[in-house]
Amino acid sequence: MADDSIRGISRRKFIAASGTAGALALAGCTQQNTGGGGGGDDNGSGNGSGGGSLSGEVIITGSSTVFPVSNEFAELFMDEHPDVNVTVDSTGSGGGFENNFCPGDSDINGASRPITDEEVENCESNDVTPVEFQVASDALTVAVNNEADWVDSMTFDELSQIWRDDGAQMWSDVRDDWPDEELELFGPASTSGTYDWFNENVIGEDYQHTAEHEPTEEDNLIVQGIQDSQYAMGYFGYAYYSENEDSVKAVEIREEEGDDPVAPSLDAASEGTYPLARPLFIYASEAAAEREEVAAFLEFYIENSGNDTVAEIGYVPAGDDVIEENMETLEEISG
């Protein structure tokens, strides 16, 4: 989804292109009139800054994982404030920081992992101060072809063997009873926060992510690659799996041998039992947040990050404590 042509696309067009998202229910997550920290309506919209008097532009770049949430909220916000143009461009977390946000060319950057010290320094060298807001949680999903009946679960070590540089080349290199067939790997590009998170938390600090895979910022191309080959494997955010769960098979994950394998789900991510659960973020420029239209959009985003819209997209909504903390931070930077 890094193609410039998707800049500002509506969620309706996004879903038409990538498959209809199923409505996902979380235990205790019911439709509500507030987005956790503020007022809204039954479409998940908050009261923002009120009425249609706002005007201007809000530019969002960054994570393909966070993209569906930002794009949905952009559309809902523009329904309430038609004179504000909110554009959303999926560039990858790192790509967005380096090429758009830190140079001062975007107001908000989505990220599927925390900003790095190097990125903070890059931003500050351009007089951009990034401010972090956690907006959801994800059950990062490892998937294989539906016909890969030899594999149902894997450990972190086995995943590392497959995905690290100079790692396994054949399925049988990992387990003797797996096919003597070459692994075909599809995954995020190195500009992706999902790539960075997987490299740090699964592959391990002693290894580097393999370059012998088909890299893309278009998560649905990863799904397509897995679907087209019996010996393929890939990984991506849970929202993309939830849209394609009939097309590919999710692998249950065990952190270590002897652990019970856990399938990716919003419940498991919310409960903390799924080993590949991770937080999702947006980062706002402190200077941009002083603009009325950006502050109003951030307020809208934060208020609604705890409601059913996020769960329907395929992520765990933010909790009340996270929303409260985010609102306090926003008040501090926006005045």
Rank of each mutant, 00 (worst) to 15 (best):
141 T>R: 03
142 V>R: 02
207 Y>E: 04
290 E>M: 09
161 Q>P: 02
262 V>I: 15
287 A>I: 00
114 P>H: 01
31 Q>F: 06
224 Q>H: 08
246 D>A: 15
142 V>W: 01
1 M>D: 12
263 A>D: 12
244 N>W: 11
195 Y>V: 00
99 N>E: 14
142 V>L: 10
172 S>R: 03
242 S>I: 04
311 A>Q: 03
112 S>A: 14
260 D>L: 06
330 L>P: 07
116 T>W: 06
79 D>Y: 11
64 S>G: 04
25 A>C: 07
206 D>G: 09
152 D>R: 00
166 D>G: 14
18 S>Y: 14
216 T>Y: 04
225 G>I: 09
58 V>K: 01
304 N>C: 13
144 V>I: 13
41 D>G: 04
269 A>R: 05
48 G>W: 10
20 T>M: 14
34 T>A: 07
132 E>Q: 10
90 S>F: 04
218 E>A: 14
214 E>Q: 04
189 A>Y: 03
278 R>V: 06
139 A>D: 01
51 G>L: 06
64 S>T: 10
29 C>V: 07
86 V>F: 12
103 P>C: 08
5 S>D: 13
16 A>D: 13
291 R>W: 05
325 E>C: 01
141 T>D: 00
172 S>M: 07
203 I>T: 14
232 A>I: 07
254 R>S: 15
84 V>Y: 09
214 E>G: 02
194 T>N: 06
137 S>N: 09
103 P>M: 10
305 S>N: 05
72 E>W: 14
64 S>W: 00
328 E>N: 08
30 T>F: 14
306 G>A: 11
91 T>I: 10
77 F>W: 04
260 D>G: 09
212 E>Y: 11
120 V>C: 08
85 N>L: 13
283 Y>W: 11
4 D>Y: 08
98 E>P: 02
286 E>P: 02
5 S>A: 14
11 R>H: 07
267 D>G: 13
119 E>C: 09
77 F>M: 08
32 Q>G: 14
189 A>S: 15
267 D>A: 15
209 H>T: 05
28 G>S: 12
166 D>V: 03
325 E>Y: 01
259 D>M: 05
134 Q>E: 12
140 L>C: 02
288 A>H: 01
171 W>E: 00
141 T>W: 05
83 D>P: 11
117 D>F: 11
99 N>Y: 12
272 G>L: 07
322 V>E: 09
35 G>M: 04
260 D>Q: 14
112 S>T: 07
286 E>S: 12
309 T>L: 08
